[in-house]
C-alpha cells in the first residue's frame, strides 16, 4: 500500500513492496525493527555489505522486510548459516535476528558454539516468551507457571535466562531491553553492531495474541505497562542474577562488554602463515 506524498525516513531500508508486514497489532516486532534500522542509520555500516540472517518464526520474518541481502533459513539454523556467510566473505557485517524458540530451543546448540568460537556477528533475539507463529506454545523462555497452549495448567519448566546463556558461552557483548526501552534498545543494538566478535542483544517483546491473552496481558499496551512497572536497569550486573520470573522484576541493561580475539581473526592469522 503506497500513500502518495508520504515518505518515511526509514523507507530506504525497507522492502516497501513487502509492506504491510504479517505481525499482529500490539506485537513488539515492529518496535524492534524500527530500533534496529535506527541503530543501523547511526553506524557507518555500508548497507551493501550488510547481511541479515534469520530462522523461522515471527521474528524470522524480519529478514524479509529489510532491503539488504537477507536469508530466511531453516528453523534454528540461522547462526550456522550466518557463520558460513561471514567466514566465506569476512567483509560482510552479519546480523542474525530471530526468536527465542528459534535461537535457544531448536537452535540452542548453535548459539552456544558460535558464542564460544567468538564468530564475528551480532545476534538479536526477540524474546516473546512463547512460539507465536504456531499459536502460542511453550518456549525455552516461557516463565514458570505461565499458560501456553501446551502448558494449559501452567508451565512447569524452568526457563532460560538468555543473557546468562550468552555470557556463559563466551559472548563479548550482552545486553537486554524490553520493547518499551526503544531508545536504549537502539543504542545497545548500535553498540553491538559496532562490536567486534559475538555480540548479543535480547529484546523482550510483547505477543498479545498468543501469549499476553493467556497471561493477563491481552493487549500490547498491557504488556508495555507491565514492562514499565517491572523493569529495573542494572548495568554491569552478573547476567546470572538477571533471571526472569513471572510477576517479578525484569532486569535490563548492558551486562557484558569485553574484548577477545574473534574466530575470523584467528583464521586470518592462520592463512597469513602461508601467504605472507
Amino acid at each position: 500500500m503506497e500513500i502518495e506524498g508520504e515518505h518515511h525516513p526509514l523507507d530506504e531500508y525497507l522492502r516497501a513492496d513487502r509492506i504491510p508486514h504479517i505481525w499482529c497489532p500490539g506485537c513488539g516486532l515492529g518496535t524492534v525493527l524500527n530500533g534496529f534500522l535506527h541503530a543501523l542509520e547511526e553506524t557507518d555500516i555500508d548497507l551493501k555489505n550488510l547481511a541479515i540472517v534469520s530462522g523461522i518464526g515471527c521474528t524470522g520474518r524480519i529478514a524479509g522486510y529489510i532491503n539488504v541481502d537477507s536469508y530466511h533459513t531453516t528453523h534454528g539454523r540461522a547462526i550456522p548459516f550466518a557463520t558460513g556467510l561471514k567466514l566465506a566473505n569476512p567483509k560482510l557485517k552479519v546480523v542474525v535476528i530471530s526468536g527465542d524458540g528459534d535461537l535457544f530451543a531448536i537452535g540452542g546448540n548453535h548459539f552456544i558454539h558460535a558464542a564460544r568460537r567468538n564468530i564475528d556477528m551480532t545476534v538479536i533475539c526477540v524474546n516473546n516468551y512463547n512460539y507465536g507463529m504456531t499459536g502460542g506454545q511453550l518456549g525455552p523462555t516461557t516463565p514458570l507457571e505461565s499458560k501456553t497452549t501446551t502448558t494449559p495448567y501452567g508451565n512447569i519448566e524452568h526457563p532460560f535466562n538468555l543473557c546468562h546463556v550468552a555470557h556463559a558461552s563466551g559472548a563479548v557483548y550482552v545486553a537486554r531491553w524490553t520493547a518499551l526501552h526503544a531508545r536504549r534498545m537502539k543504542d545497545s543494538i548500535k553498540e553491538a553492531l559496532n562490536k567486534k566478535g559475538f555480540s548479543f542483544v535480547e529484546i523482550i517483546a510483547s505477543c498479545p495474541t498468543t501469549y499476553g491473552r493467556r497471561n493477563k496481558m491481552p493487549t500490547g499496551l498491557d504488556t508495555m505497562k507491565y514492562y514499565k512497572e517491572k523493569s529495573v536497569i542494572k548495568h554491569g550486573i552478573e547476567p546470572e542474577k538477571a533471571d526472569i520470573e513471572i510477576g517479578g522484576e525484569i532486569i535490563v541493561g548492558k551486562f557484558v562488554d569485553i574484548e577477545k580475539p574473534t574466530f575470523n581473526e584467528e583464521v586470518e592469522k592462520l592463512i597469513r602463515r602461508f601467504h605472507k
Binding site: 550456522p80 548459516f81 557463520t83 556467510l85 567466514l87 548453535h110
Partner: peptide
C-alpha cells in the same frame, strides 16, 4: 561445527558468501 545440521547450514551460508 557442533553437528551436521550446522555443517550443512554453514556450507550453504558460505556458498551465498
Amino acid at each position: 561445527m557442533e553437528d551436521e545440521l550446522a555443517s550443512m547450514a554453514a556450507i550453504l551460508g558460505a556458498s551465498w558468501g
